[in-house]
Computed example of a mutant assay.
Amino acid sequence: MSDAFTTRMLNVSTGSRERVVDLTRDCEDFLREAAAGRDGLLNLFVPHATAGIAVIETGAGSDDDLLAALHTLLPADDRWQHRHGSPGHGRDHVLPAIVPPHATLPVIAGRLELGTWQSVCLVDTNRDNPSRQVRLTFLG
Rank of each mutant, 00 (worst) to 15 (best):
H48Q: 04
D92Y: 02
V107F: 14
P47H: 07
D128S: 08
T50N: 04
V99S: 05
L122N: 07
L70F: 11
T72Q: 13
T7K: 03
A54G: 03
L136H: 01
A103Q: 01
H82W: 02
D124Q: 10
D22I: 02
L44F: 00
R135N: 01
T50L: 02
Q118G: 07
E28W: 03
A34I: 03
D3A: 09
A34W: 10
L114T: 09
D29S: 15
H48N: 09
H102S: 14
G52M: 04
D128L: 06
L105Y: 01
L10T: 00
V107Y: 14
I53K: 00
V12M: 04
G52W: 02
P96A: 04
H102L: 01
V21R: 00
P106C: 12
M1H: 10
P130V: 07
A49I: 01
D64H: 13
R91H: 05
A97N: 00
E18G: 12
L112T: 08
V123M: 13
F30R: 15
G52D: 06
G37H: 08
T58Q: 01
V55H: 00
L112W: 12
T6E: 06
R38E: 06
P87G: 09
V94Y: 05
D63M: 04
G15I: 06
A109V: 04
I56E: 00
P101G: 11
V46M: 10
G40R: 12
T116W: 07
H102K: 04
D65T: 15
N126A: 03
G88P: 13
Q118A: 05
E28D: 14
S62E: 04
R132K: 09
A109W: 03
S62N: 12
T116K: 05
L136K: 01
L139E: 12
R25E: 15
P130A: 07
E33Y: 03
R19N: 07
L31S: 12
A97C: 03
R132L: 04
